[in-house]
């Protein structure tokens, strides 16, 4: 139902209806829904941090929550983790109200917080072994250490690890309990590109074993790599929600043809038929157009246009000429 017809621009109203109907059409005892959020609001005094956010996460799905700093991502995730109380609206995590979830409920969750921190004078293995004991069915400590790439560092005190290595300890602590639902709040901040790729491999193997994941990230390529669906929030409101390769609607994913015209100006044209546009340019120029390229907007381009940021200042000398379908 989150698929949108080509070129359809969703208004906020339609969105709410869409998201709202998603929440209500799922039957209450739907075992395939691990997170249900309906009309979630959170206010601090007169400041509205979340203003009626609704979405569902299905079993086995990786759901990316995207948005600028201060959009309400962490507030949402911390409400679902049980750290914060919501002001109003409904929330169910694994069928339980996160505001009152007890220890057996927590035992099914894995939480990787945004900020890392630990006194640091225990080793990686000591800390993981300690935490493994808190869960009824933990994963094997050696296996978890290996899966986050810390086998060489398992006897190193956490205080002596680099920032990226500590982050891997956070991730290891998040998965040690073999969670049904894993919260990842900006998990790869501070990772080098290679570590990030390794981390993606780890998350894919967790997905393959059926773990449901709620991910927030600043890296749109990460969301595109890992996410099945995404929601974009800004200013505490849901701007869009949908499959990762459909979010933003067809219009925002329309390919762009760029070239340099006879006068040396950089030009671009958005068109659903880039091949035809290129053919027309070839015919017009009587040969190969200069610097011709056809680009499909990345998730990052779509995201930036959704939150109203200028996604493309490299080519802003010329007003963008759009061809609508």
């Amino acid at each position: 139902m989150e698929a949108k017809s080509a070129g359809q621009a969703l208004s906020q109203n339609e969105l709410c209806n869409d998201a709202g109907s998603m929440a209500t059409t799922d039957t209450p005892d739907d075992a395939n829904v691990v997170v249900e959020v309906h009309n979630l609001r959170k206010t601090y005094g007169s400041f509205v941090a979340l203003d009626g956010v609704s979405f569902d996460i299905h079993r086995g799905e990786t759901f990316a929550l995207l948005g600028p700093n201060g959009a309400g991502k962490s507030t949402t995730i911390e409400i679902l983790e049980g750290y914060r109380q919501r002001t109003s609206g409904e929330a169910r995590v694994l069928g339980v109200d996160p505001g009152i979830g007890g220890l057996p409920w927590r035992a099914q969750l894995g939480i990787v917080l945004q900020s890392t921190g630990e006194t640091g004078n225990v080793t990686v293995r000591e800390l993981l072994t300690q935490f493994a004991g808190y869960y009824p069915a933990p994963r094997d400590v050696d296996e978890v250490i290996a899966s986050v790439g810390l086998r060489e560092k398992d006897k190193t005190r956490i205080g002596k690890l680099s920032g990226g290595q500590r982050r891997r300890v956070d991730v290891a602590l998040g998965i040690i309990g073999n969670p049904a639902l894993l919260f990842l709040d900006e998990p790869t901040t501070g990772f080098d590109p290679e570590a990030r790729r390794q981390f993606w491999g780890l998350i894919r193997s967790l997905k393959a074993s059926g773990t449901s994941i709620l991910l927030t990230t600043h890296y749109l390529d990460e969301a595109a790599q890992l996410g099945d669906r995404a929601a974009v929030i800004a200013g505490g409101r849901l701007i869009d929600i949908g499959k990762i390769d459909e979010i933003g609607g067809a219009a925002s994913r329309m390919p762009v043809v760029r070239w340099t015209d006879a006068t040396g100006r950089r030009r671009e044209e958005r068109t659903p038929e880039p091949g035809r546009a290129v053919a027309a340019l070839v015919a017009e120029a009587g040969g190969e157009p200069r610097d011709i390229e056809i680009a499909r907007p990345t998730l990052e381009d779509v995201y930036l246009s959704l939150i109203g940021a200028d996604s493309d200042d490299a080519y802003d000398s010329e007003p963008v000429e759009e061809v609508r379908a």
């Binding site: 750290y83 921190g117 006194t119 309990g177």
Partner: peptide, 13 residues
């Protein structure tokens, strides 16, 4: 330093 927050997210009483 976040130790308690982490413990609070685990099933430790």
């Amino acid at each position: 330093d976040g130790t308690l927050k982490r413990l609070g997210g685990s099933p430790l009483s």
